[in-house]
């Protein structure tokens, strides 16, 4: 029995050391990506191509989900608020929840599962089929040519996608509250505008999405580059991208929210 415990403790220690080692490797890889970004930013057509895959192809799911989330918020918000005779505040409720929290977080989760996993799978597959090594043998650095453009495309698309999500959400809330239920349109918008502050709510929301964008794409490109070059390795890496991204998004969201909205409102 004590032997088992010793082995168990050793196992835990081994895992901890292993994850710290991996974290260090990931940080080194992230720095490397940033250092080698110069070339890909100068050749912007590379980033445009990746913007198509990370941005344009994620747009549909973002727009549709945003619309539905906004409609649900509108419906639930109305149900609760009308008990206090404050149904005109439903616009404020929808807009604030979306701009501060749901927009950045849900859009980031969707982005991680749609675009993040695709980035990991693509890079992992390129590694498994020796494309990255072939590139290296052609004297082209795969980090600069493959990783950096995908990273920057992700960082650029994330805030835009989150903004689309929030806008669609507000529109969904408007559809349900004003068009369907019949809340007064004027007070819907004016209450929203008087309560949503550009600097504190919208800019903070955008900062959040930028941070999420960096985190998700950094995780995605690292997992892809670090994947075992086999079919199982790539599928495992893809799963890890989605799981790790989701945890990191929610954790970062708490930290950022605590920083931004502390002592305000």
């Amino acid at each position: 029995m004590p032997r088992r415990i010793v082995i168990g403790i050793q196992g835990v220690g081994h895992r901890v050391i292993d994850s710290v080692w991996r974290l260090g490797y990931a940080a080194r890889f992230f720095t490397l990506t940033l250092l080698k970004s110069g070339a890909s930013i100068r050749r912007f057509s590379l980033i445009i191509r990746e913007l198509y895959f990370t941005g344009v192809l994620t747009m549909v799911i973002i727009l549709v989900s945003g619309l539905f989330v906004g409609m649900v918020l509108g419906l639930q918000g109305y149900e609760t608020l009308q008990k206090y005779g404050a149904e005109t505040a439903v616009g404020t409720l929808v807009a604030l929840s979306l701009v501060r929290e749901l927009g950045p977080v849900v859009a980031a989760l969707l982005f991680a599962s749609r675009a993040g996993s695709a980035i990991t799978a693509e890079i992992g597959l390129m590694k498994a089929t020796e494309q990255l090594e072939a590139m290296g043998m052609m004297a082209v650095d795969p980090v600069a040519r493959v990783v950096a453009p995908r990273f920057w495309a992700g960082v650029i698309s994330m805030p835009l996608l989150a903004a689309m999500f929030s806008t669609m959400g507000v529109f969904g809330g408007y559809l349900v509250a004003v068009v369907l239920i019949g809340v007064d349109e004027g007070s819907f918008w004016s209450q929203m505008q008087s309560m949503v502050d550009f600097r504190f709510d919208i800019v903070n929301g955008i900062i959040k999405t930028c941070v999420f964008g960096v985190a998700i794409t950094a995780i995605a490109v690292f997992e892809g580059y670090d994947a075992q070059p086999t079919a199982e390795g790539v599928s495992g890496a893809t799963t890890r991208t989605v799981v790790t991204s989701a945890l990191v998004i929610l954790g970062l969201d708490f930290v950022l929210t605590a920083f931004m909205f502390r002592g305000v409102g």
């Binding site: 693509e122 390129m126 089929t129 020796e130 494309q131 090594e133 072939a134 043998m137 004297a139």
Partner: peptide
């Protein structure tokens, strides 16, 4: 090394063509 690699090339087992 990168300069030297420009003067040599390697054909991988399954071609390793860039799929994209």
């Amino acid at each position: 090394l990168f300069l030297l690699r420009r003067k040599m090339s390697m054909l991988f087992q399954f071609g390793a063509l860039f799929t994209d």
